[in-house]
């Protein structure tokens, strides 16, 4: 199990990849972000974006999915997030883009009141051309290593 104590500043993680389909873009947008450039391929062509693009909140949701899978691979004791410092949607995400992610630990600090610690990291999602489509600085909470285990290690 990877606890808060095991994270080091500068440590990087590669997230997996996800090919986003037009059907996924439309389904997410119709439920949560029904703006024409997310829900209507024809209207989107005439928009600022020149074609259908994914909701930025959809791109973030996919980042979350890939992060959960990475935590699972690392057996990291993630326990939620208090929030994000910043999120920038830098490039449009279009149907059939293949998104990958990478993260870098910027800072770690312990909770004063709970048996958890915080990890601040930069997270970037890139498309198949290597363009960063979303850049995030966010905070994740991890459980601390139990005292007994600490003594034994």
């Amino acid at each position: 199990m990877k606890h808060w104590e095991d994270f080091e500043i500068g440590e990087t993680t590669e997230l997996g990849s996800h090919r986003i389909t037009e059907a996924e873009i439309l389904a997410f947008a119709r439920k949560y972000d029904p703006q024409p450039f997310h829900t209507d391929p024809v209207a989107a062509r005439a928009s600022l974006y020149g074609g259908l693009i994914a909701s930025g909140w959809h791109t973030c949701a996919l980042m979350m999915r890939l992060s959960v899978e990475a935590n699972r691979r690392e057996q990291a004791a993630a326990t939620g997030s208090p929030g994000l410092d910043s999120c920038r949607w830098l490039k449009p995400v279009r149907p059939d883009d293949v998104l990958t992610g990478r993260t870098e630990v910027l800072e770690t600090w312990p909770s004063r009141s709970k048996p958890i610690g915080f990890v601040r990291r930069r997270i970037e999602m890139l498309n198949q051309h290597g363009d960063v489509v979303v850049a995030i600085v966010g905070i994740t909470m991890y459980r601390r290593r139990p005292a007994l285990e600490e003594a034994a290690s």
């Binding site: 930025g56 949607w89 979303v134």
Partner: peptide, 26 residues
């Protein structure tokens, strides 16, 4: 996602918005 749905339904009608660059301090 529920927030952006409420924005779409309740805030942007009649506004010349064309999306967002992102957000801070979530």
């Amino acid at each position: 996602a529920m927030f952006i749905r409420m924005v779409c339904d309740g805030m942007i009608a009649g506004n010349a918005t064309v999306g967002a660059k992102g957000f801070d301090d979530l």
